[in-house]
Structures are given as C-alpha cells and as structure tokens.
Design a protein around this nucleic acid. Sequence first.
DNA 1: TTCCTTTATCACCATATAGTGATAAATAAC
DNA 2: GTTATTTATCACTATATGGTGATAAAGGAA
Lengths: 132, 132
Amino acid sequence: MLRDFVRSTKAMSDETRVRILNLLAHSELCVCQFMVILGMGQSTVSKHLGILKNAGLIEMEKRGTWSFYRLSQDKTNTHNRDFIRLLPSLPKDDPILQKDNRSLNEVSKKGVAFCSTVALKKKQSERSTHAG
Amino acid sequence: MLRDFVRSTKAMSDETRVRILNLLAHSELCVCQFMVILGMGQSTVSKHLGILKNAGLIEMEKRGTWSFYRLSQDKTNTHNRDFIRLLPSLPKDDPILQKDNRSLNEVSKKGVAFCSTVALKKKQSERSTHAG
DNA sequence: TTCCTTTATCACCATATAGTGATAAATAAC
DNA sequence: GTTATTTATCACTATATGGTGATAAAGGAA
C-alpha cells in the first residue's frame, strides 16, 4: 500500500538513518556500537533503529543483553528489498560515510566489549564536568 | 553526496508527493491539473512540486502561462534514476492511487482548459458560502 | 491600456520530528 | 541477594514541515 511505501521513504529521509543503513550494509551491529560510531546518545540511536525496524528495513535479534540489528532479509516486501539494493551505490566519496566506515572497522575489531569502556568513560567525563 | 541522497528521500517521504510522482509516471501535467486531481490548493501543489524539482526528481517547462512538469530525464543522477525506476511498481491495488489514476484519465481527456472551469466554480462556491 | 488566468512565493499556524536526559525492564556478574 | 550493563520508552524542547490564504509577477485576451 501507499502508506507502507511512504513509511519506508520517511524512514530513509533522515541523514542519521541513512548512515545507519550504510553501516548495516557492511555488518550487523548492536546499539552501543552505533553510539560510538555515530557519536550520539543511546536514546537517539534506539529511536532511529525503532523507526527503521517499524518500516521493515531492518530486523533485530536479542542475544543476552545486546540487541543486534541487520538489514531486513524479508524477500516478500518488494519496496524495501529495492531500497536496500540501492545502499551499495551510496556515494563512496562522501566524507561522513567514509568516516563512518573507518569507525566501523575499528569498532568491529574491538567487538562489543569496547562499548562499555566508551560508555564508562563518557559517564566519568560527565561526572567530572558536573563536579568542576 | 549523502546530502543529495537524503534530499531525494526527503522529497519522496510525503504521501502527496508520491501521488504526484505516480501521476507523472503516466503523463506530464501542469499545476492546475494537479490541483483538480489532488483536490488541494494551488500554493500547496506549487510547494510540493518545488520540493520534487529541487531534489532533481522532476523537471519543469514553461509554455505560455502554464508550467508543465515531468519526471526528470537526467541520466547522470544515478540515485534519482533508481528512485524513478521504482515508481511503476507502486501498489496498483492502493485505493488512493487508483482514484488518482482515474482522475488523471478524466483530466487528460479534457485538457488544461478544464482547469479554469474548476477553479472558477471553486471561487464561486466560496463566494456564495461567504454570502450565505 | 485593462482584465483574466496561471504560477511562485510569502507569512502564518498546527502538527511532526530529531535529539536529549531520566527512568525502568532485562540480563549478566558479583 | 546486590550491582553493573544494555536497551526501550517516556517527557521535553527546538526545529522542520504540510496546508492555507494573500500577494505579486508574467503571459494571453479583449
């Protein structure tokens, strides 16, 4: 239906969410990894992932405490399948996407254990900011 | 660039604008014809067409007083070309698009001369509403 | 000229949305 | 049991956006 088509285009009509789709075109990721790569708060990342998931463009799998996201593997939704097919042709010379891809490599090497470290550091720096 | 990609998805992320693209996939149209088919005001239609044009998804040609719009024929913009290619696979069973396509047939038969009649009738009905 | 039609643009308002911090649920480790 | 980590969801604010009416520019007709 037209409503579903628009729900998908709306989901793709935001820079942050296109960056998320670009990252997922390379590998699956959890919320905390997105936080590090995108440099955004947890609630922001979670909300964006929810919008993409609600549109059926991505899917989620829970493993322990972590929620891992990947591009939708659904073959029945023709529009979303077509949209996902366009992702590999996102501009490779775009500075934002280039930086995202570099960050993705670093984060992937270190795994999810890396995330708690970053989150901890952030909390500590915020605490010291409040103190000072 | 990512900015251009998002500008295009933003342009397609509104129901009215997808309806416009669906209509243009069948034939070129002027602003007053869109007003009749979409049942919206002239400034609204003009604004939507401006957004689609700014994204490079459609192009405009002035003939006398009329502005005729059609899908972009630009072969160099790969994203917009890909997006335009998806239009024929818009859901054919959607009631809104079906109604739009029926209206398009009627309006196309009658040509642009039809529009001034409709606009006139609308103005008259508004005048009588104010009077009564 | 004057009048009419078509269109783009402006100001305005109501609603939608992106980003954030706080909170709570769920899981794991202690 | 307690504590820490990850995530979803809520309330909130600032900004963006869709729709409208008014206005003005441009072209055609009388």
